[in-house]
Design a protein around this nucleic acid. Structure first.
Lengths: 253, 253
DNA sequence: TAGTGGTCTAGACCACTGG
DNA sequence: CAGTGGTCTAGACCACTAA
């Protein structure tokens, strides 16, 4: 009757808010700029703070915003491209400065990893912990699981743990001939443990990259790497070649 | 004084809830089973519904739960592995039954895509729309952008749009020699348009796979594929070989 | 200490699904 | 139609950061 608008589906407020904010970010804000605080923003748009937050959460998920408790909300830079797969497959730790081994232990792996390794679920495996920094920011935390059978010559190493032993373990891996690797990417949320290392709160979204390394006609190692989903764009293939460089939106005053 | 617990960091309720629910899912529920509704669950745990929902949201993000409005919350099956990159790079549409072309148009591409294609931002490009189904479920929606210069021999095709023309366009692509491709994966939220196709509400998390196809020493096409993050695990490399098959948790009564 | 984002509550109403 | 999840409100308090 009186309605000229069909409005088949009334758009949720937070969704409309997100659209408005996205346009504002593209046109009126530049990278690093701080937004008004949530209470002010909510008042300005005439919504409850929780509703405003729902919009901000989505924008953070999309890598447009960065929020830090006690500080504020800032406009995020475009996601950085991070190479995780290359044409010429290599073992972790091979002349690869992006990663820094931090520690290693000998313990039972999670059941899912044990299945990939085709080892018994209660069998001890070496676990190397590494972290990756890019552009001065921590971007990933990784655990590499290596069955004892993959590195038989470990007698010369004394230290039971620590970065030195971690490096030695990875060095041992290089002796095996890598026959292939297989990777998968899925969405996850960061564990309390990795959260500190990635400088995020527990539960933040991450991209989990699982890599299976083949050598000697079996699975010689498995790596589970956890990348910050807000700041990273994982790149595969054609490393060294031309880089995909996104430019999410060119306008910026 | 009276406190024996140090409790350096009081764990948020929703985080603890998530842990409890995860354990319950592993031990007391089987795939497909429906959970009690949110109001009952919240009451049972003595928290507000919003808090309970925060935990459920995370579990859905991790692919453990599936929620449908008007129906209920069910235990999700393990994520399915979906191949998105292969050793032998091929053009889209090559003897590849996983995708179904649905439509195509000739229009200007988004600025970010135009940059990848190295075309002018106001230049018209062919846009082919495809959707991918796996195990009876829609898993991805894709847009393939093809500059007119990549498919010069399109005179024989009559239809200005529709699946037939889409297939013809992809067929034309096969004539070019593919020199390489480059992919990236990042987190996004599903557009209102793709949401219908993927059977999710707008804003649901998705994995966005951007592929750049090289031929003739330039970028001959760009594809932007949107995969459901809740149900998919993207696999790269070694297709046809042994499959990584996750088994998130073996126990199930 | 003042100000920020993060958590939490106890309601309310809406949109959708199925019988 | 009853029951489900999705949206929204108007508060409150907490944890953290920086001045």
């Amino acid at each position: 009757m009186g309605t000229t608008q069909l409005e088949t589906v009334p758009e949720p407020k937070y969704w409309h808010l997100k659209t408005v904010l996205t346009e504002a970010l593209d046109s009126e804000f530049s990278v690093g700029e701080i937004l008004p605080n949530e209470r002010d923003l909510a008042a300005r748009f005439g919504v409850a703070r929780a509703t405003l937050r729902q919009a901000l959460e989505q924008l953070e998920l999309e890598g447009r915003l960065q929020r830090r408790r006690g500080v504020g909300t800032t406009v995020a830079p475009p996601r950085m491209g991070v190479a995780v797969g290359s044409e010429q497959h290599t073992w972790p730790g091979a002349a690869d400065d992006a990663w820094k081994p931090t520690d290693c232990t000998l313990a039972v792996a999670p059941a899912t990893v044990a299945d990939l390794l085709e080892t018994d679920r209660d069998e001890n495996v070496h676990t190397v912990r590494r972290s990756r920094v890019s552009h001065g920011q921590p971007v990933a935390a990784e655990l590499i699981y290596i069955p004892e059978s993959s590195v038989p010559d470990l007698s010369a190493i004394d230290a039971p743990s620590g970065p030195a032993r971690a490096r030695a373990l990875l060095r041992e891996l290089q002796h095996l001939e890598l026959e292939g690797q297989e990777q998968s990417v899925e969405l996850g949320s960061v564990s309390a443990e990795d959260a500190r290392e990635l400088d995020r709160l527990p539960g933040a979204p991450v991209l989990v990259v699982t890599t299976r390394f083949y050598a000697d006609a079996r699975t010689a190692a498995v790596s589970v790497a956890t990348y910050r989903a807000d700041t990273c764009r994982l790149t595969f293939g054609a490393t060294g070649g031309v880089e995909i460089h996104h430019d999410p939106e060119r306008r910026a005053s």
